[in-house]
Structure formats: C-alpha cells, structure tokens
Amino acid sequence: MSEPRRPSRPERVRVTRPPQRSASRARAGELAETRLGGVYMRSLLREQLRLAWWVLGALTLGVGALPLLFWAAPALAGVHLLGVPLPWLLLGVAVYPFLLALGWWYVVRAERNERHFAELLEGSERP
C-alpha cells in the first residue's frame, strides 16, 4: 500500500465513513415540510407499503401456511407426485420459483409506483 506518490495522482483522502450526500437536502426538505409535498410523500409511502403487504400476504398464504396444512392433514405427506412425496416437491422445489415470481412482481410494481410519483412532482412543478 505504500507506493511512491506521483504528482498525477490526486491526494489521498482519509475517509472513515462514506460521505453523506447533502446536495439532495433542499429537495428533501421541500417534500417533508410543504403541505403539498407531505401529501405526495404520504401517498407514495402508502402505495409502497400496500404493495409490500400484498407480497407478504402471498408469502404467508403460499409458503407460511404449509406447516399448518401438513399438521391439519397429515395424510397429504403420503401423496406421491411423479414418484416424489408431495412435501418434498413443495418444500424442496416449488417454493423457489414462487419466491422469485413474487420478488419479480414486486420490483416491477415498486418501480412503477416511483415513476408515477416522479411524474406527479414534475407535473406539479411545471404547470
């Protein structure tokens, strides 16, 4: 690490933690403190949280309910599909594409929400 300092190389800066961005502060203040900004912000938050609840609800129903299902109906564990018992097929294989599909759906929707929010603000600034 102790190589000769060449003039072309910029002075080494001693950083103990990454710099906090301050350029966006003005904008953040505007959104937090004006009434209209607050309304917009709360609507974005509500949209994103509702989306999160949908995904978590699907996760709870689709994956979280499985132990209860097998507890309530132990006979299901004996069912074979393609020579493999149903619990193994569900827990060992089918769960993963399901999780990925949920994640993909979430990313698409969350980005759409943010795009709408940005368009809304742009629109309100240039009437």
Binding site: R27, L31, A32, G38, L45, L121
Partner: peptide, 19 residues
C-alpha cells in the same frame, strides 16, 4: 424524522434533478 423518511422513500431520479 420527516426529512429522513423522504430521503428513504423518494426515488433517486428526483433528487438527482436538483443535484
């Protein structure tokens, strides 16, 4: 707190416009 919530949830594209 309110300012920080904005920072957490507002998309970066907005902030960069005012950079």
């Amino acid at each position: 707190a309110s300012r920080f919530m904005v920072r957490l949830h507002a998309p970066e594209t907005l902030e960069l416009d005012r950079g």
